[in-house]
Amino acid sequence: MSIDNSIVRKVGKLAKIKIKESEENKLLDELNNILGWVDELKKVDTEGVEPMLSVFNESMNMREDKSDSKFSNNLITKNSPEKKAGFFVVPKVVE
């Protein structure tokens, strides 16, 4: 399965990564190379095979319902590029 420029742009948008026009063709070639190579998997007969979600096969540990908020909003926002009165700040979002 090979992809074209429009798919690269669409996927770039989904992944929220701006792809410059100048980079687009190079990336497209690389992706097509990689995808052509992973297409090898089509040769494998997986009829009746369950997808393997995890190698971990112990039961999931469940937590007791105790609340414990260890962090102040100073710490939580400490690394934030923009903050205000304990909030994170982003450019205005129109809903």
Partner: peptide
């Protein structure tokens, strides 16, 4: 948004895309 690099923009989507 919460930490790490930010390339500023007045448009959120643009901020995401250029930052990443």
């Amino acid at each position: 948004v919460r930490y790490g690099l930010r390339e500023n923009s007045e448009n959120l989507d643009d901020l995401y895309q250029t930052t990443r």
